[in-house]
Amino acid sequence: MHPIEIRLPSDTSVLEPLQLIIEAVGKSAKVEVDDLSLLSVSVVELAKNAMEHGNKNDPEKTVTVSFNIFPNRIRFMIDDEGSWEPEKALGFNPGEGEELLLTRGRGVLIARNLAKWVEFGLTPEGKTRVTLIWPLN
């Protein structure tokens, strides 16, 4: 089955609508009500990273959030128009030492902790793709 796709400009004003959409997706997949905001935080964090690192916050460039609902999981894929290297762009430990007091860079850490599976890779066209799996009970 083809995933459902949402195409977003790289503009932070779309984050709140995205949050609402993701929670609606979670609700339709019967994610526990208490977990809906954790799911939306995870996806919004990754979409923000795609806008910033992949698209350099250029509103003309899009971030595509697509999803499939399977019997035991939801799979989200967040694609941007760049070819950035996550470990290079995010290569620090925001929870350690002096980096604890940095004002940014915690998005992937949060998404990786809230979701059970977050993996960076490439689309067939060589663009950065993040895959997030949210298990369903």
Binding site: S37, V41, E45, L101, L102, T103, R104, G105, R106, G107
Partner: peptide
């Protein structure tokens, strides 16, 4: 506050500093 992400945490850290 019913929803917060890393941007909110960043501003709180900024306030702390």
């Amino acid at each position: 506050v019913n929803w917060m992400d890393s941007s909110g945490l960043g501003v709180i850290v900024s306030g702390h500093t």
